[in-house]
Design a protein around this nucleic acid. Structure first.
Lengths: 162, 162
DNA sequence: TCATTCAAGTTGCCGGGGCAAGTAAGATGG
DNA sequence: CCATCTTACTTGCCCCGGCAACTTGAATGA
């Protein structure tokens, strides 16, 4: 339980196993996704996530700061992704008319076509790597546990510690 | 179940939630670990993993190719890490006397001290981010599911597709 | 024995991301 | 109304990692 966890300076054997599996997933899964997307669509997994997130919003438009937060990105990283996307005419940036400090990013038609074209193979890869190996119950349990961890990690990064 | 998963070109709602949580963990967790280690020990999470893996073996010695596989690393990546480690006198490289094609990496005393010094804060961070938010049952379920996913992803990368 | 093949490791080049500093727009307080 | 502060975003510099090409050492086969 929670108390022992932070007291001992080491991981017990069960924790070691979980941790090793998590490390492998955290290192190797992005690599596998990047390779498939790079080969088939010429974009990274992170870039796909940005396009997909934009495409799901009303008017395909978001403030950059909101987009960065929802994609778990820093602002400089997103800024440079946007440079590339604008060069390919996948998005346009313009100042938010209601508050000049913000910048609105909008997906173009070409940008939406890119997501739609890239999605099927990417989704198939995700299913093959993540969901196919799991039973329905395992999938639910994985979701429940990851949701808690994700919330903790997200809070960590937003609070600026690390 | 398995069949539907690969047939439909989309994720259903439950899968979406799991996938979003996994994406956050996969993107943000390494960032959080890197920041802590970089700040407190001047090394990355990946570098810590390499040192730790070496320190656990007999004689603190491994072939580079084995080390790369167990750290889910490519060979060029590990090769460059070793350049940095040798520059700091944390490891030494020498050809394997039994087969000149292999290279043996051995942790020096200074290298072992580095792991030992870095471990406590790193382990505490891992516990805080990953284990503290979970019940014992959730931890077991997470481990079971991740082990399956990790095996699948690992096979994927080793087979060279992606 | 020597040519071919194969695997381990290194190197060079290029692109991407982090951080810190700089810019710009709005809020705040006298 | 102006100085200061805060927040959103961009830019420059540097390091890291991927890929492809190269080098080297051992195995294979005639």
């Amino acid at each position: 339980m929670g108390l022992m966890d932070t007291q001992s300076p080491w991981l017990d054997d069960d924790q070691q196993d979980v941790w090793q599996a998590l490390l492998t997933v955290v290192i190797a899964l992005p690599a596998a996704l990047d390779r498939q997307l790079q080969r088939d669509a010429g974009i990274s997994n992170f870039e796909y996530g940005v396009l997909a997130r934009l495409s799901m919003t009303d008017e395909a438009t978001m403030r950059l700061s909101d987009l960065a937060r929802e994609c778990d990105s820093t602002q400089p990283r997103l800024s440079k992704v946007m440079d590339r996307f604008e060069a390919r005419d996948w998005v346009v940036r313009r100042p938010d008319p209601t508050d000049g400090r913000y910048t609105l990013a909008t997906l173009t038609d070409a940008g939406r076509e890119k997501v739609v074209a890239s999605a099927p193979e990417h989704v198939a890869q995700v299913k093959r790597l993540v969901f196919d190996p799991l039973s329905a119950a395992q999938r639910r349990h994985l979701g429940a546990a990851l949701t808690r961890v994700a919330a903790t990690v997200r809070r960590e990064l937003e609070e600026g510690r690390g």
